[in-house]
Amino acid sequence: MDRRKELVEQYKELKTEAGIYKIENTRNGKLFVASTNNFKSMNRMRMMLGLGSHPNRALQLEWTQYGGDAFTFEVLEVLKKKDSAYFDTKKELKKLEDQWLDRLQPFKERGYNTPAPARE
């Protein structure tokens, strides 16, 4: 097997970790909490912010204002996957994200997230 195919096979075997992370503005303490299927995608978020194309406009505005050095990225919790045919990663990730949003309350003056609409 040539070297390229070998590297592709190694990449496919790499385990990806899903979970919850936060981006914190160290100047004002505001937080952005999000989930990801792969923590390696946090680099993509940093790149989007650097290019001015992050979908969260409030976070993007302050990133542009303060610069990337004013922000930290931190993994809050890794999703513990279960070996079960019934384990729904997307559903469990959403539950975990909701727990962290409830715990940290990164809304309005405390953060960049938008609260979920109240259910009746």
Rank of each mutant, 00 (worst) to 15 (best):
M1N: 09
M1R: 07
M1H: 10
M1K: 09
D2K: 01
D2M: 01
D2H: 06
R3H: 11
R4D: 12
R4A: 12
K5Y: 05
K5D: 15
K5H: 13
E6T: 13
E6Q: 15
L7Y: 06
L7A: 09
L7W: 06
V8G: 00
V8Y: 05
V8T: 13
Q10T: 02
Q10P: 00
Y11F: 12
Y11I: 08
Y11K: 08
K12E: 14
E13K: 15
E13P: 00
L14D: 06
L14H: 06
E17S: 06
E17G: 03
A18K: 02
A18H: 01
A18L: 04
G19A: 05
G19N: 00
G19M: 04
I20A: 01
I20N: 01
Y21Q: 07
Y21M: 09
K22W: 01
E24Y: 01
N25S: 14
T26R: 12
R27F: 10
R27D: 12
N28H: 04
N28E: 07
K30F: 03
L31E: 07
L31S: 04
L31K: 10
F32R: 01
A34S: 15
A34C: 08
N38P: 06
N38G: 12
F39N: 07
K40F: 05
K40Y: 10
M42K: 00
M42Y: 00
R44K: 15
M45S: 12
R46M: 11
M48A: 10
M48H: 01
M48I: 00
L49T: 01
L49S: 04
L49P: 00
L51W: 09
H54K: 02
P55A: 10
R57L: 08
A58N: 06
A58L: 10
A58D: 15
L59T: 03
L59V: 00
L59K: 00
Q60S: 10
L61W: 06
L61R: 11
L61N: 11
L61E: 11
E62H: 08
E62P: 01
E62Y: 03
T64V: 03
T64G: 02
Q65G: 00
Y66C: 05
Y66G: 03
G68A: 10
D69R: 07
A70H: 03
F71A: 04
T72N: 08
F73H: 03
V75K: 14
V75D: 05
L76A: 04
V78F: 07
L79S: 12
L79V: 14
K80H: 09
K80A: 13
K80P: 01
K80D: 14
K80E: 15
D83N: 14
D83L: 08
D83T: 09
A85G: 05
Y86F: 13
F87S: 06
T89C: 06
K90F: 05
K90E: 13
K91L: 14
E92S: 10
E92D: 12
E92Y: 09
K94N: 13
K94A: 15
K94F: 12
L96S: 07
L96K: 04
D98M: 15
D98C: 13
Q99V: 15
W100T: 07
L101I: 11
L101A: 07
R103N: 08
R103S: 09
L104W: 05
Q105R: 14
Q105S: 11
P106M: 07
P106A: 08
G111E: 03
G111V: 03
T114Q: 08
P115L: 02
P115T: 03
P115K: 07
A116S: 14
A118K: 13
R119L: 13
E120D: 15
